[in-house]
Design a protein around this nucleic acid. Structure first.
Lengths: 111, 111
DNA sequence: CGAATGCTTAACCACTTGGTTTACAATAGT
DNA sequence: ACTATTGTAAACCAAGTGGTTAAGCATTCG
């Protein structure tokens, strides 16, 4: 139970921990695209981009539909929900910290 | 400019992509703790946990204060803010998708 | 048909990750 | 002064990452 969602989080966070893969997701956020179109902005071989795409696919963040010789990739954002949810649990921590900081600044300013 | 925050995101997402490190952060969310205390729940050698902690430290997610022979680790949640912010940009995508799904279900139910 | 396009597979390489064990340094307890 | 505790450092290993080039397979175009 726990293990399954754990591995999903592993794959999601691992997938978005690389700048190229984040950029690819951003591109796909604008519109679906083929592999060569996605690879175009990067100074990198096509197989390298292909590997990144496979990692995104394994994380469930990208859907591939093969149409003739073109592979059309589309963003699949749903798996990002649990990843965001896990992080949201820490929002209170940094907000609390910032509140403390504000308090300290106010206190210092008063005297 | 872009590169710097990129590397920060790389380190953050990389750090939380491992279940042991997420568990450590969760423990630290409850309270600060020493290395051995943090290592206790894991079936793993102390040096292994020590390495995980160093990765969290490098990502800026943990603060270490050395007190005698004990190292007291504390959660530093602020760096999670940009990581959450990046993910939040995709919230609209999955919400839109869910809306579409709901629409489809409603439409199907109507006929 | 022949040639170009889109993409993957395979083999290779350097580097990193995640774990181990062993050894060590420093502090604390008896 | 020992001894136990806390933690790191170093050396090692297997597996994974991130990239390359070369080859190959389908598909489309001329």
């Amino acid at each position: 139970m726990v293990k399954h969602s754990d591995e999903q989080l592993d794959r999601i966070y691992g997938a978005i921990s690389h700048p190229v893969r984040r950029k690819i997701l951003e591109q796909l956020g604008a519109s679906a695209a083929t592999v060569t179109a996605l690879a175009d902005p990067f100074a990198m071989s096509l197989p390298a981009v292909s590997k990144h795409i496979r990692i995104l696919e394994a994380a469930g963040l990208v859907n591939r539909t093969i149409d003739g010789r073109e592979h059309r990739l589309a963003l699949e954002a749903r798996p990002l929900l649990p990843a965001t949810a896990w992080l949201e649990r820490y929002r209170s921590f940094w907000e609390a910290r910032l509140d403390l900081l504000e308090d300290r600044i106010r206190t210092r300013a008063r005297r």
